[in-house]
């Protein structure tokens, strides 16, 4: 298992390879298209994240002490952004997710290239994933 910080480094490196933001957007769109399907049963009101202009669902499952996320959104760019977050956080122990820094978002310049509403949505998504981690963590204790 790779550490969260290593995965974040990889993503930063990948984003550096692109020459402009249109190419980065193309990449995010591709990620969005290849995001694995979420079980329709998990697209519940409970899993809906507040603060996004498009509907976003994030679901978490615990397997062998690791948290696994699945997600979906009506908007492809949003799906692409969740795909990045899932790559970073999914398959990690809850404590590592709780402790993880999210500076990489600023380092790849994602936030400044999103509209304000989408940037709020991004913050809400990260917050929700961390909340899941806290919840599973406290369940175990």
């Amino acid at each position: 298992m790779k550490a969260i910080s290593d995965i974040q480094e990889e993503i930063i490196d990948e984003f550096m390879l692109f020459e402009d933001w249109m190419q980065r957007y193309e990449y995010i769109i591709d990620l969005g298209k290849s995001l694995p399907l979420i079980d329709e049963a998990h697209k519940t009101e409970n899993n809906l994240i507040k603060g996004c202009q498009s509907k976003v669902w994030v679901h978490a499952d615990m397997e062998e002490d690791k948290l696994h996320f699945t997600a979906d959104s009506e908007a492809i760019l949003t799906k692409g952004i969740i795909a990045i977050l899932i790559r970073v956080f999914s398959g990690q122990p809850p404590q590592a997710i709780v402790d993880a820094s999210t500076d990489f978002i600023d380092q790849i310049g994602l936030k400044e290239h999103l509209s304000a509403t989408r940037a709020n949505g991004l913050v809400s998504m990260i917050k929700q994933m961390k909340l899941y981690a806290v919840a599973f963590q406290s369940q175990r204790q």
């Binding site: 933001w21 009506e74 908007a75 492809i76 760019l77 999103l114």
Partner: peptide, 14 residues
């Protein structure tokens, strides 16, 4: 098949 938000975000980049 497309979400308005996706189209608007890409237009903003342009």
């Amino acid at each position: 098949g497309l979400h308005p938000y996706d189209i608007g975000s890409l237009l903003d980049q342009m």
